Amino acid sequence: MGQASSAADGYKALDMLATSVAVVRDDGTVLFVNAALEDARGISRRVLVGSHFPDSFSQPAHLRTALAGAGDREFAALRYDAWLLRMGRDPLPVYVIVTPTEGPEMVVELQPLEQQTRKDREERLAELAQANKELIRNLAHEIKNPLGGIRGAAQLLEMEMDSAELTEYTQVIIREADRLQSLVDRLLAPHRRPHVVGDVNIHEVCERVRSLMLAEFPKGLTVVQDYDTSIPEFRGDSEQLNQAVLNIAHNACQALGERIAQGDAILTFRTRVARQSTFGRQRYRLALELHVIDNGPGVPDSIKDRIFFPLVSGREGGSGLGLTLAQTFVGQHHGLIECDSQPGHTDFKILIPLP
């Protein structure tokens, strides 16, 4: 009992973690479990300490093998998926991380599989966003110079022509060159404009966007304000965030076309404080959660995984830049945009760290 009590005292800091953690011997005997693991199992630590930890899983052999490998120092850490048994509830899918310590103990960390999947997705999206940013910037610069030459040549050619019919062709070239120039300017916009930092009130941003949406769609659209007014101001670029929220809301209203015609379109702005939130590979004590929700048809399945990619649009005639720019602007605030969509409910969630 004294040895178990001493181990518990040494690992008390693990009770502060939201992740389930057990400290075990290489034979699987439990020396300590933190409060999160108690909650996950539905069993008190007094019962768990001294038990055989592999028996906490639907397939105990996997953990026994992992502990044996850790004991022989065959790896720095071993990871695998498993099912954690729970008292009175269905087994929980978890991501298991077994890490040897300098002593005879092993640390076994359990993350809900959904949490690990989300973390992997965030990292993948961050890498893609960075790659897209570099690609867009380089491509836009490569297009810009020859585009100016094409337009200038068309203008000079037009000056030499007497035929109105032929002039019409040069005008087509000039108009299309101008259209492409406008597209290039929009691609380069986030990288040209300096990041102007000041105090941002997110509800002022939401209200500006709400006014613009009601001005553009005065009939058939209801805008719901569901605000947590306790959210503090934070340092950021209000114009960039205004543009990000505007792009998301405008996309939503475009998707709500049929419901607006029917008179039952709903756009909701919801703000909340997220506590102990992890995104962008960091954990934040407080974060802003801004939801832009619509009751439209949802994001088409064919582009769900690519909606933040440049030039990907679910609407005919759309540029496919609105969400790309929104993601860039939010990313410059160390934030993240997530999308959860099904017919009748599409929720774009913006997460930004709070002081």
Rank of each mutant, 00 (worst) to 15 (best):
S302C: 00
E158N: 09
E216P: 00
D178R: 04
L187E: 04
Y227C: 01
I174Q: 09
I350E: 00
A140I: 03
R175T: 15
S313W: 05
G2Y: 15
A66E: 03
E38T: 15
A61V: 15
G236E: 13
D55C: 02
K133G: 08
Y227L: 01
A274P: 12
Q3F: 15
L157H: 12
L351M: 10
S341A: 12
Y95R: 10
G280W: 07
Q59C: 13
C206A: 13
L156H: 11
Q155I: 11
A68L: 13
L156C: 09
N242I: 01
Q116K: 12
R283N: 07
A126I: 04
M213E: 08
V223L: 14
N138A: 10
C206G: 08
Y284A: 03
A154M: 03
T324G: 04
Q59K: 14
G280I: 10
A261F: 06
V98I: 05
N201S: 14
Q327H: 01
V98F: 03
A4K: 13
V107P: 05
A153I: 14
R272Q: 15
G318I: 01
D90R: 13
Q225P: 06
V184N: 09
R25Q: 13
G322R: 03
P232V: 06
G42S: 09
A35T: 11
E160F: 14
S58K: 12
I231F: 12
D305Y: 07
A177G: 11
A61K: 11
R315C: 02
K144C: 01
I307W: 01
E204W: 03
A13I: 01
T117C: 06
N247C: 09
V184M: 10
Q116Y: 02
L14T: 01
N34S: 08
P343T: 07
F217G: 01
N247D: 13
P232W: 12
A177W: 07
V24F: 07
L113V: 00
E102M: 12
G257Y: 04
T101C: 00
R272T: 11
R235A: 15
N295K: 11
R272V: 09
G71M: 10
T101F: 08
V108Y: 00
L311Y: 05
L156N: 12
G298P: 01
D305L: 05
F309Y: 07
E165N: 11
M1K: 14
F75G: 10
P104Y: 04
T117E: 14
I337V: 09
C253N: 07
L128C: 03
R281H: 10
M161K: 06
F348I: 00
N242W: 02
Y80R: 05
S5N: 15
L336C: 06
D162L: 06
D162G: 15
Q254K: 14
A274G: 10
V223S: 14
R235C: 08
A36D: 06
Q111D: 05
P146E: 12
G149E: 14
R64C: 13
G42L: 13
Y169Q: 04
R89H: 14
D72Q: 14
W83I: 09
Y284W: 15
I248Q: 01
T19D: 11
E123C: 04
R186C: 03
R275P: 05
E102W: 13
G296L: 02
I150H: 08
G280Y: 08
Y169P: 00
G236I: 08
I136H: 01
V47R: 02
E105H: 06
H334G: 05
D226S: 00
A76H: 14
V197M: 13
